[in-house]
């Protein structure tokens, strides 16, 4: 469990700022890498701002993350050209294989599923990225097979 006392110091440093929440969250995220439940609860306690409001701000700005990311980041393109070539079906299969919705991380921490907009690879649509690798001409089966490979590699490395 991280040392939460630094949060109190950060909050104190914005004592005289009129709307300090965003600054506080920025510094806290820099310090801890993410804005987890226990971290934001501490911010709520110390600022007396309702947790739901803080969580709303933390999820509003994409520079904040509220959940730990998985080992691999899977980004599926959802722009029109990929959509026309069946990206929705691919995404549905990935979702059911991983058991998560977009924006979520698998329970074992191996994958985080995200959307991305056009990667400029529409010629080989539908497209997904896993970490920094691009995969095109996907079918639902192909996409799931690729993720299975990552998973296998993950376990053999461990």
């Amino acid at each position: 469990m991280p040392d939460l006392n630094k949060i109190d110091k950060i909050i104190k440093s914005y004592e005289n700022t009129r709307t300090p929440l965003i600054y506080i969250l920025k510094d806290v995220q820099k310090e801890y890498g993410l804005l987890s439940d226990e971290i934001l609860t501490r911010v709520a306690k110390k600022t007396a701002i309702p947790l739901s409001e803080i969580y709303g701000v933390a999820t509003f700005y994409s520079l904040f993350t509220t959940t730990a990311k998985g080992k691999h980041i899977v980004r599926c393109c959802n722009n029109a050209p990929c959509h026309v070539k069946g990206s929705k079906e691919v995404l549905d299969h990935i979702k059911s294989y991983l058991g998560v919705e977009t924006g979520e991380t698998t329970a074992d921490g191996s994958f985080t599923l995200e959307f991305t907009s056009c990667l400029g690879l529409c010629a080989v649509a539908p497209v997904m990225m896993v970490d920094n690798e691009v995969y095109g001409n996907l079918t639902p089966e192909k996409a799931v097979a690729i993720l299975k490979d990552y998973k296998m590699k993950g376990t053999s490395n461990a």
Partner: peptide, 19 residues
């Protein structure tokens, strides 16, 4: 009470409890 809030934004916006 603020048990519920608006989370995220734009097309993804939704109503939820914290976390």
């Amino acid at each position: 009470v603020s048990a519920l809030g608006m989370e995220s934004r734009g097309y993804d916006v939704w109503v939820d409890t914290p976390f």
